[in-house]
């Protein structure tokens, strides 16, 4: 996995609440057996009409947001399905950070596994970042994972919380499976013990 340290980029505002995984990547695109190439289909039904023409009103189709790397979103972003195609599509589009008041649990975890940083902030701070994102391409934010800080285009600094293990993995681009396999003897011990206490499993 690529390391995540600091991102300075355009933030796009998506104030709609409950943006679900079916919106982020409609089911038609789940039939792939690859992880890549989904960016062009991110938000497909909001982004294009049935003929494949871009909807000019959709935020990521607007000239100033086409290269957005940060999304500032409404409450409960990523609710719905466990499909990792949702973070795959966003990452492939170029999104690296998503800010909201809350995220659905599975989407939140899936994001970290793909080198993306979801950030939870209180409503007032999300509102402030949303207003900054509304300014368009001239408003570039900086997200610094090491310092756990977001700096807005006018220099306002907002601190954020992040799970320390997840932070460590992002900063170093670590592969979870490799880390877990270092504990393989503990897994083996658990299985040996469990074979005695719960042999029916």
């Amino acid at each position: 996995m690529e390391k995540f340290t600091k991102v300075t980029g355009i933030a796009a505002p998506m104030p709609l609440v409950n943006i679900d995984t079916d919106m982020i990547i409609p089911k038609g695109f789940l039939k792939t057996i690859k992880r890549t190439g989904l960016g062009v289909h991110a938000f497909d039904e909001m982004r294009y009409d049935r003929q494949g023409n871009e909807n000019p009103d959709f935020v990521l189709n607007k000239p100033q947001y086409r290269k957005a790397e940060i999304l500032v979103a409404g409450d409960n972003f990523g609710c719905g399905s466990s499909r990792e195609h949702a973070p795959w599509a966003l990452a492939d589009f170029g999104i690296k950070v998503i800010v909201s008041t809350s995220f659905a649990d599975i989407f939140f975890n899936n994001s970290f596994k793909n080198g993306m940083l979801p950030i939870v902030l209180p409503q007032a701070e999300v509102d402030l970042l949303m207003a900054d994102a509304e300014k368009g391409a001239n408003a570039r934010m900086t997200v610094d994972l090491e310092a756990q800080e977001i700096t807005t285009s006018d220099g306002h600094v907002i601190k954020f919380e992040v799970d320390q293990f997840k932070k460590h993995c992002l900063l170093n681009g670590l592969d979870d499976i490799g880390l877990t396999l270092e504990k393989v003897s503990a897994i083996h011990d658990f299985e040996t013990k469990s074979a005695q206490s719960r042999p029916w499993v």
Partner: peptide, 9 residues
């Protein structure tokens, strides 16, 4: 539920 990275894990 889990994502595909976790399925692999």
């Amino acid at each position: 539920g889990i994502g595909t990275s976790e399925v692999e894990h």
